[in-house]
Simulated assay, not measured.
Amino acid sequence: MDHLKCWIFSFILSSLIYSCKKADDPNMPTVSNTVTILYLEANNDLRQEARKAINDLEQGSSKSNNTTSLILAYVKDNDRYGYLLKISPDNNPLKISSDTLKAFDASDPSGAAQISNVLTYIRNSYQANYYNLILWSHGTAWAPAAQFSSQPKTRSFGEDRGNQIDILDLKDALPMHFNYIIFDACSMASVEVLFEFRNKANYIIASPTDVLSDGFPYQNILPHINSGSKEDVKKIASAYFNYYNVQTGLHRSATISVIDLSRLESLSKYISSLDQEDGRSLSTVGVQRMDFTHGFPVPLYDFGDFISKNYSYEHIASIEKLLEDALVYKNNTPEFLGNTLHSFSGLTLSALPKSDPYYPYYANLEWSKRTKIYLPEEKP
């Protein structure tokens, strides 16, 4: 399938071309309202899509009268430099007109330290009342990055010359709190991922499944992008769903959720309090799978379907209520890439047997430590 954002192979840009490049501007005014940051890890097969995302933001900005907020985009799509852009209005879809505010040395493959460096620079240079963050690249839920595993290469987040950013390192690299974080990357609405980021933002907007190569429709979501209110994050997610829901064929494939991260503690505490016998016969037989890409590194199951097939009625009702409280918005097309979605709760969950090679990493995730959800070993 050549339309998946997490595996798409695109045309390679011959070079970075921006119409206006200038050195750091010490007189850049302090922003008094909101700074929204689009962070694009695109030194991989998504270079062309990164360029389109910036152009879409420029076109959307040309229709906006916003004067109190700032949209910045950091893009790394080559082996030498990353560029911080100030998004400027422009209706030419073939030309990037945004000013380059700063060039960052990026001769080493991207990692968590680079993310921290860029975001710290933005925080110190463009002080605002609120910050929003869009993390744009490849994604594979909580799967450990390739350099942390002897398994075949995976894409935890990002991809730069074979190097990926581990999800735990990514969490620790974020130097400030955000109104919301959007994962414009595949399969990041995993409860394991979300729980790691619960203290980093108020909301996360993400897909429990793949994200098609078009990604988020930035022209459509721009009217709501500089806010962080519950209503606006719902509108962002709704605009994403509506964009794909009117497509035809396999392009009509979308799942999206908005999670109130402050509600996840209650969910984890309830599950961790259940009697051991509730978890002794955990099984994934018949549970809706949400990992549809061939060779996806870790299993992803629909959270609600897993709960409904493994716990007593009383516990199911309580967990569903806690899940409902945490989900601000969720929606899905009836099928995803030809796979019927019989169940969709808005989140995914992984459950591994202790013999799985990824289990030691999985057991170290905060969600796993709290809930201790794992599968019994199969009998020989």
Rank of each mutant, 00 (worst) to 15 (best):
I8C: 14
F11Y: 11
I12W: 04
L13A: 15
T34S: 06
E49N: 10
A50W: 02
D56Q: 14
G60V: 00
S62P: 00
S62I: 09
K76Q: 13
N78F: 07
D79G: 01
Y81D: 10
Y81H: 10
Y81G: 01
Y83E: 07
P93I: 01
I96R: 01
S97F: 11
D105A: 02
D105V: 00
A106P: 02
I122K: 08
R123Y: 14
W136D: 00
S137N: 09
H138N: 10
A141S: 15
P144T: 04
A145L: 05
F148W: 11
T154P: 00
T154A: 15
G162L: 05
N163D: 10
I165M: 01
D169G: 04
L170S: 10
L170P: 09
L170V: 09
F178Y: 15
F178V: 09
N179W: 00
Y180M: 08
F183N: 05
A185K: 03
S187F: 13
V193S: 04
L194H: 01
K200A: 12
A206Q: 07
V211N: 06
G215C: 01
N220R: 13
S227Q: 04
S229W: 01
E231K: 12
K234I: 12
A237Q: 03
S238R: 14
A239I: 10
Y240V: 14
F241G: 05
N245G: 07
T248N: 12
S253P: 13
I256M: 12
D260G: 02
S266Y: 10
S266D: 14
Y270F: 15
S283P: 05
V285Y: 14
F292A: 04
P299F: 02
Y301K: 10
D302P: 11
D305K: 07
I307M: 14
I307G: 08
S308G: 08
H315E: 13
E320W: 09
L322G: 09
L323G: 00
A326G: 08
A326T: 08
L337Q: 15
L337A: 13
N339T: 14
L341D: 10
L341V: 10
F344P: 07
L349Y: 12
S355F: 05
P360G: 09
K369L: 05
R370C: 11
R370N: 13
T371I: 01
K372D: 15
K372A: 15
L375E: 08
P376F: 08
E377P: 07
